[in-house]
Design a protein around this nucleic acid. Structure first.
Length: 615
RNA sequence: GGUCCCGUAGCUCAGUUGGAUAGAGCAACUGACUUCUAAUCAGUAGGUCACAGGUUCGAAUCCUGUCGGGAUCACCA
């Protein structure tokens, strides 16, 4: 039995026996004892004081005596004010170590029979992936892994936003100015190729718009709106969308193309398929390089009409109401929100409509009662409303929906802006971190004797570890500052630092060869650095559970760092494994090293990070 | 303006079901490689936990207000 379970079980019993108190285990406060005090676990006794009618330190004293007498795992205790510090026997820790060594599913929870869907990435198909997508993808991937470890059956998916005006802009630009060029003919990664045409469209549009601003139509508009001289620039900035829809030649052509697409026009559909095909090919490469994949895909072109029938049903049941102009709404004031549109007056759907429909389809197709949407925090309100609507519709999966909201990724210079060309491209970024890893490795020279191909793979693993760890270690809901220089750091609180701990484990175990696991129990007098490592390993399953419960991979990243740090400390503490003072010590430390490696590998895998054989 | 999120060391971040003297890394400085990988370790220095009240044995953590930053409040996606 796990020592924490024992504490949670025995302390209430002790309180009952000593003071005739009924204290549920959920009200106990148990901490790992702070380093500066003796002991392994601490029971906080202040909360018992009122009921027991005694001073906290007195209770701690009496509780300590009782626990030592009645629980064999406890060997001694000390009391400081209302803190009861309990020491756990070496026997317990040695048994734990021997068990964990052979436990291949350590950290995993039993299957809970629940199916969870994690949706992440979900890009538009008009331009390549960038740093914002990377945060999204890493969070999604890691969350999926964590949920899996916590006992869920997980389906990883993305909804690809493959239709709409954006892709039409790329298509139109290529059609008008592309002269039949292809990614192959230009030697450009195919999603970047499509992105260039999107940018090209925007450039052309900008020119057109600037020219129009000098026209009579624009001047009379300014007069009509009574725009002051000094506000003209500001006005046109805001007016851009309306210009696009009302006056723009290019805008009209793009919209005409969208209409043709909706009409299933063969020529447009062919073009659409061609360009999206290029984009998917490029995305595939990026995902592969990043080390992620999906179990199933959804395309907006398939789902964008979903949800209408649900709206109509809900209309009959009175969940929604219709305005005079024919638009359909829902009143969310009871949820402290607004009235929300779910169907336009012309009967076409909005984003909300298809999200309602898609959620239901997924539930029906996949049986996923948990659905996690990894989407930036600018859509907090949208998802709050979506989940409230699903709940009002009485959907059984509504309560299992969760918006894993994450903050924007900013640069030290400020926001990323496509207009100013400061958007950090995903492919460039990965290439950059891998190159940095390669440079650092060359400088150190530890990989000199290894075949080129293996070296390349290790550089990739290290570079990506730096990038991934840098991003995942930050609490998702916080917006983060991405400093490119720091993201390629390989020292300190970084991915490579954690990898290095694992590599050191591997190196020791490789040199040591076989060892006698039967001697673990013979080791006497566990030293402080050994104990700290053991306790950390011991807490791994709890970390996974917490991370799954909070949908927060940063917990796992912080755990990885703590474990690596403690191993490095142990490694430098003078407690040698290979040259241990006795065979017992050698066996114990080898087992400790192996368990550390296994736990590091397992926890880093939850972040999508590999631990190389050497570095 | 309404709603939501954030504010912790020079910088980047941990720590929030309320617990002991608030922790790491980077940057700076000092020391440790003929010793299991120095991408490491040991140490020095760095704090009004935005501010002001409140709740209590105890507050970075909970409540109220103020200030600062962000997001959102479309028949856009």
């Amino acid at each position: 039995m796990n020592i924490l379970d024992i504490i949670y079980d025995k302390v209430p019993k002790a309180l009952k026996a000593l003071y005739d108190m009924d204290m549920g285990s959920e009200n106990l406060i148990i901490n790992v004892t702070k380093k500066e005090f003796e002991g392994d676990y601490t029971v906080v006794t202040f909360p018992f004081s009122k009921q027991a009618k005694k001073r906290p330190d007195q209770i701690a004293e009496e509780l300590g005596v009782y626990l030592i007498e009645n629980v064999e795992e406890f060997t001694k205790f000390n009391v400081i004010k209302g803190f009861l510090n309990l020491s756990v026997s070496d026997e317990y820790w040695k048994t734990f170590l021997a068990d964990v060594l052979t436990n291949e599913t350590f950290g995993e929870s039993k299957k809970n029979g629940k199916k969870a869907l994690v949706e992440f990435s979900s890009p538009n198909t008009n331009k390549p992936l960038h740093l914002g997508h990377i945060r999204n993808i890493l969070l999604g991937w890691s969350t999926a892994k964590i949920l899996e470890k916590a006992g869920n059956d997980v389906v990883k998916t993305q909804i690809i936003n493959d239709r709409g005006i954006a892709i039409c802009k790329s298509m139109l630009a290529w059609q008008k100015f592309g002269e039949g060029k292809t990614p192959q003919s230009e030697g450009i990664k195919s999603d970047h190729f499509v992105g260039q045409w999107y940018v090209f469209f925007e450039t052309k549009f900008k020119v057109e718009y600037a020219k129009w601003q000098e026209s009579d139509a624009a001047k009379s508009l300014l007069k009509e709106k009574e725009v002051k001289e000094e506000n003209v620039i500001e006005f046109f900035k805001k007016y851009k969308n309306e210009y696009f829809n009302k006056y723009s030649q290019l805008g009209a052509e793009a919209k005409a193309m969208l209409l043709k697409w909706e009409d299933n026009d063969k020529e447009v559909k062919d073009l659409w398929n061609k360009m999206n095909g290029w984009v998917y090919e490029g995305f595939e490469t990026t995902y592969k390089n990043l080390g992620v994949h999906f179990d199933t895909l959804y395309y907006e072109s398939d789902t964008y009409l979903l949800g209408k029938d649900i709206i109509n049903e809900g209309l009959e049941k009175g969940t929604f109401y219709k305005k005079e102009d024919g638009s359909v709404w829902i009143d969310l004031e009871s949820e402290k929100m607004d009235h929300k549109l779910v169907l336009r007056s012309d009967g076409t759907s909005v984003y909300m409509t298809q999200d309602i429909g898609t959620a239901k389809v997924r539930y029906e197709e996949l049986g996923t009662e948990k659905m996690i949407y990894v989407v930036a925090d600018e859509q907090n309100y949208h998802f709050k409303a979506l989940f409230a609507i699903l709940d009002k519709l009485g959907e059984p999966f509504a309560k299992g929906c969760h918006h894993l909201s994450y903050g924007m990724v900013n640069l030290p210079s400020g926001k990323m802006k496509s207009r100013e060309g400061t958007v950090v491209d995903a492919d460039d970024l990965m290439a950059e971190v891998i190159k940095e890893a390669s440079d650092a490795a060359t400088e150190i020279g530890a990989l000199a004797g290894i075949p080129k191909e293996e070296q390349e793979e290790i550089f990739r693993q290290i570079g990506l570890a730096a990038l991934k760890f840098f991003i995942i270690k930050v609490n998702p809901k916080k917006s983060m500052i991405f400093n490119p220089a720091e993201s390629v750091d390989m020292q300190g609180q970084t991915g490579p630092y954690v990898q290095n701990a694992g590599v050191r484990c591997r190196s020791i175990l490789r040199k040591l060869g076989e060892y006698d696991k039967g001697l673990i129990a013979q080791y006497s007098d566990i030293k402080e650095p050994e104990k700290e490592l053991l306790q950390l390993i011991h807490s791994y399953p709890e970390v996974v559970r917490d991370a799954a419960e909070d949908y927060d991979p940063s917990h796992v990243a912080n755990y990885c760092y703590a474990l690596a740090k403690n191993f490095h400390k142990f490694f430098n503490s003078g407690l040698s494994v290979i040259r241990a003072e006795t065979e017992d010590a050698k066996s114990f430390r080898a087992a400790l090293t192996e368990s550390t490696l296994n736990t590091l590998a397992s926890s880093m895998d939850l972040l999508g990070i590999d631990i190389p054989e050497r570095m």
